[in-house]
Amino acid sequence: MSRRYSLITLMVLVLPFLGNSQNDTTIFVQAEAIQLSSPIAFYGSTLFADSIALSFAPGQTGSEVRYTVDGNEPGKDSPVFSGKQFFKSSTLIKAAAFHPDFRPSESIEIDFVKVTRITDVESIQLITEPNNQYKGGGAGSLVDLKKGDLNFKDPVWMGFSEGPVEVVINFKNPREIKKVIISTMTNQGAWIFLPEKIEVETDNGIFAGQVESPGQEVPGKLSYEIVQCNQVSTKRLHIRIVPLSNIPEWHPGAGYLPWFFMDEIIIK
């Protein structure tokens, strides 16, 4: 059976006691042992009101991107993603690069969420101001459908170093609220943690949602924390986000105050 090889030439510098000499060492590596880089995705925000366009750059010549929309990891028999595709509903996409001569790449995950554009907001007030380093785009940016990525320095993110974090939204007319969703992130290496709980006060009651901790040493992750509001009618929302009181004991920053980041408030 024939095997394909990738030639890698390494220049090894040998330093004897006196003088210098240089030897070339040639190493043969089986191509099957080389893993492809993950595909690069091109799209706007992962939040959209009508439809969202998605395309990929697979990287290695001759490779192709395969994907799934059912939550499973993509495999060699998954459909090939070609050209630009449009999605009109909330869709979780997992994609990876494949090539007959190399190992598949690590998969990437894109969670597109379709939302209703909020057009009846009379005012938004940030009672708690974000830290000066991470001010986001102001109160109005919390309903502009612009979603940040895992880079917490992305200018759409608001970062808070103390809490509770409070936001008041007034509508022009009473409206029915089924749920309030806070778009946030976890980056434990940067001391960014999910909050402990979220409370939503309406004209007809207070609703609370406990946030499940992701555990320790999890990779950076974007998440949507949901508070169910039982289809209540209200003209005003007072959202109160309670961060963890301290960073957990297992973390190097144990005992210090954690950061809380958010970039969007979704109302359904």
Rank of each mutant, 00 (worst) to 15 (best):
E64M: 07
G159E: 02
S90A: 12
E122T: 04
V80P: 04
S90E: 09
I124M: 04
D50V: 08
P74N: 10
Y134F: 15
P155L: 02
D77Q: 13
S161G: 15
G137K: 13
S82W: 00
Q85R: 14
S105E: 10
F171A: 06
V121L: 05
P130I: 06
Q125W: 00
E64T: 13
S55L: 12
P155F: 02
S105I: 08
E109I: 11
T68G: 12
F87E: 11
N170G: 02
L142N: 04
A95F: 03
V115H: 03
N132D: 11
S107F: 09
K76S: 15
K147R: 15
Q133Y: 13
E122A: 14
E122Y: 06
L126I: 00
V121S: 02
A95V: 07
R103M: 15
G59D: 00
W157H: 01
K84I: 15
G140A: 15
K114P: 10
H99P: 02
K94Y: 05
Q60C: 11
K172G: 08
K172Q: 15
K94T: 05
T91P: 10
D50W: 04
F81R: 03
K135A: 15
E166L: 05
E166S: 04
A53H: 09
I52D: 03
Q133T: 12
V168E: 15
K114T: 08
Q125K: 10
V69H: 02
R103S: 15
D111E: 14
E129Q: 13
V121Q: 01
N173H: 12
F56A: 11
K94Q: 08
Y67C: 08
N173W: 04
T68N: 12
K76H: 12
K153Y: 13
V156K: 14
F86L: 14
V143T: 13
N72F: 07
I124F: 00
F152T: 06
Q133W: 11
T61K: 14
V69F: 06
F160A: 00
Q85I: 12
K114C: 02
S82Q: 10
P74R: 09
F56H: 07
Q60P: 05
E109H: 07
G136Q: 04
G83D: 12
A96N: 12
A97K: 08
E64P: 00
V156P: 00
K146I: 10
D154V: 00
P130E: 05
I52G: 06
I110N: 07
E73D: 13
Q125N: 12
F86K: 15
F160S: 09
D70A: 11
R117G: 10
R103Q: 15
S123C: 03
R117T: 11
L54K: 09
A139F: 02
L126M: 06
N170T: 13
N72M: 13
V65T: 13
I169R: 05
F102N: 02
K135D: 08
F152D: 01
G75M: 10
S105V: 07
V115G: 03
K114E: 14
S78R: 06
G148S: 10
T119I: 04
G136M: 06
T61P: 06
I124C: 03
E166I: 13
